[in-house]
Design a protein around this nucleic acid. Structure first.
Lengths: 235, 235
DNA sequence: ACCTGAACACCGTTCAAGT
DNA sequence: ACCTGAACACCGTTCAAGT
């Protein structure tokens, strides 16, 4: 307490921390995309030098993993617990909710899709696998078939994840989704009638489809397949 | 197969062409991995400067796409035609063969997995979609459900594609696959018993599983689901 | 302990200049 | 038309030096 003002430069001198870095990385990824996450840009946003970041984080790979982890963990904590409105959800409903949670997370943060698809062995995906597996078990799938059943669900989610992320990236941030789908559908309709007979024939369905519903329809097909197998192999 | 040590002068006189560039890119990707494809490395292999490549190819994105296209086209040309041994294959068999073709292609060229997963709208994946869709149609799926059915199959394949590619990348080229899976299974078995109860319980199945068979089992589950839907919705 | 910022080794891409 | 290779604008990462 020497004489002088006690104005605290807290705002800018808030110390660097892994948490702050990851938060800034998520923000940067959301606003500028995967290509925009740069140690220099990150440092500027945190008003430091690029080197400082390395004190809290080993490198870009870990940073990306931590950012993904942060988003997915928040998703799983939210949506998957009990359902909320009292009634016991069926395992099918729980799986749908789980998958939809991941789907929506990727819808809001496309870069998460890319990251999940290329790092399936890391914590976030492991947790999704665990949650899915429990519901598969609750579904009555015999033990020997559970690993396969959970894997199919997970791989499907991963596939959609990657595709959605790519769509978000290839469509500039300004463009409308409907516009984008319309353009693709029109392209499909003009493909070679012989070489792409089937694709042409479903161009209309591509145009009309809703991403979320389509995703859930896929989940339901897989659930039907798993259940059919359970009846064949079980008891 | 590979040109030996005998230095052939004709090799370097042979003019640069898009075809030669793509072939060299595939070779580089196969031997050194995705990180090894560099315009400088490519130029050296073709004994030119980096700038020369840009005369035949617009940039790295196109080069990657062309390399993927080359591999997938070869795959589809091979395996998917008629079956080979006279008998008419069922649509199920045709879909299995198709999916397995993509699976094997990625097994031999892991970088194809990454590329397919992140560029699903390009020619190679479009062709897979077309071939799959025709078999879905042959399966008797009603028109309104065909787009969804083919999409589920494709997304599943894409998910496995990405995962396999990642596994291949994270395991150094020297290590054995069994060794790698064993290590993962052991890790699973030592997870927190409460938080990862399910994952722990299937660690043994992870260790025992065969990648190709597991992949096909997934395809069969989805086929069962599609067929169940057909019976519900059709006729 | 934590941060700074210049420096290193790379990368994709461009472009005047050559043949 | 096709190729050359230096140069540009970046990038992740390191590290002596500061506090």
């Amino acid at each position: 307490m020497t004489a002088g003002r006690t104005c605290r430069p807290e705002r800018r001198r808030e110390p660097l921390s892994r948490e702050r870095i990851v938060a800034a990385a998520v923000e940067l990824l959301d606003t500028v995309g995967e290509g925009g996450l740069t140690f220099r840009a990150l440092a500027e946003r945190l008003s430091t030098g690029p080197g400082a970041i390395y004190w809290h984080v080993t490198g870009k790979a870990e940073l990306l993993a931590a950012a993904t982890d942060a988003v997915v963990t928040a998703t799983l904590a939210d949506g998957t617990g009990e359902g909320g409105d009292g009634g016991d959800p069926t395992p099918q409903d729980a799986i749908r909710a789980l998958a939809l949670g991941v789907f929506d997370a990727i819808d809001h943060h496309p870069w998460v899709g890319t990251q999940l698809a290329r790092a399936p062995w890391q914590t976030p995906m492991m947790r999704v696998f665990e949650h899915t597996g429990r519901q598969v078990q609750a579904l009555g799938v015999p033990e020997a078939a559970r690993f396969t059943a959970a894997s199919v669900l997970l791989n499907y989610v991963l596939g959609v994840a990657g595709q959605n992320a790519e769509n978000a990236r290839s469509a500039p941030p300004g463009t409308d989704r409907t516009e984008f789908v319309d353009a693709a559908a029109s392209q499909w309709a003009e493909l070679d009638p012989e070489e792409y007979a089937f694709t042409r024939s479903v161009a209309g369905q591509l145009r009309r489809h809703d991403d979320r519903e389509e995703f859930l329809a896929g989940i339901d097909i897989i659930l039907a397949g798993i259940t059919a197998g359970r009846e064949r192999a079980g008891s």
